[in-house]
Amino acid sequence: MKLRRIGKGSESKIELQMTPMIDVVFQLLVFFLFTFRIATQEGDFNIKMPLTTYSSSQTVAAESPVVMMHVRLRADGSGRLRQSGGIVVNGDRVLDSFEQLHNYVIGVIGGHEPSAKADAEVELDCDYNLHYEHLIDAITAVSGYVDKSTGQVNRLIDKISFTPPQAAPGS
């Protein structure tokens, strides 16, 4: 079979129109450039706290976890954690930093069976004006830690609850 050669002799090149494609490509680029945001990853601290166990110490007592810690967080006038004695555990143990709290929790939890660890509970009692970041610091200190050699998260206490909110100052 013989194929005819089109345009024989005339040597006319078929030129692809690139302009519309480049236009669209740049439009897309500009769109992505303006909508792109560099955001750090986010994670959640899960808290299961139905209303019945929120303010009822009787309910908590009925379940009677092996390890129950009451952590009081005290704020200074500007909402920051007090420099000295900002953390009080179980009403008598006064701590100055979240690192101390973390070590305290490890000391308490370490001597118990794994089942007791799972059952351990922390109740947080914060001053009304305390900055939320310190609340998260406290939850981080009692929840676990990152093993620096492996990068794995080791869990400590999962059950976290709050006391009823304190009254706003001046209310």
Binding site: Y54, I136, I139, P164
Partner: peptide
């Protein structure tokens, strides 16, 4: 507390890495 009064019981306090 308000969410609890409306029968929500699971909460996720979000923080950034």
């Amino acid at each position: 507390q308000m969410c609890q009064e409306e029968k929500f019981e699971k909460f996720a306090l979000r923080a950034q890495e």
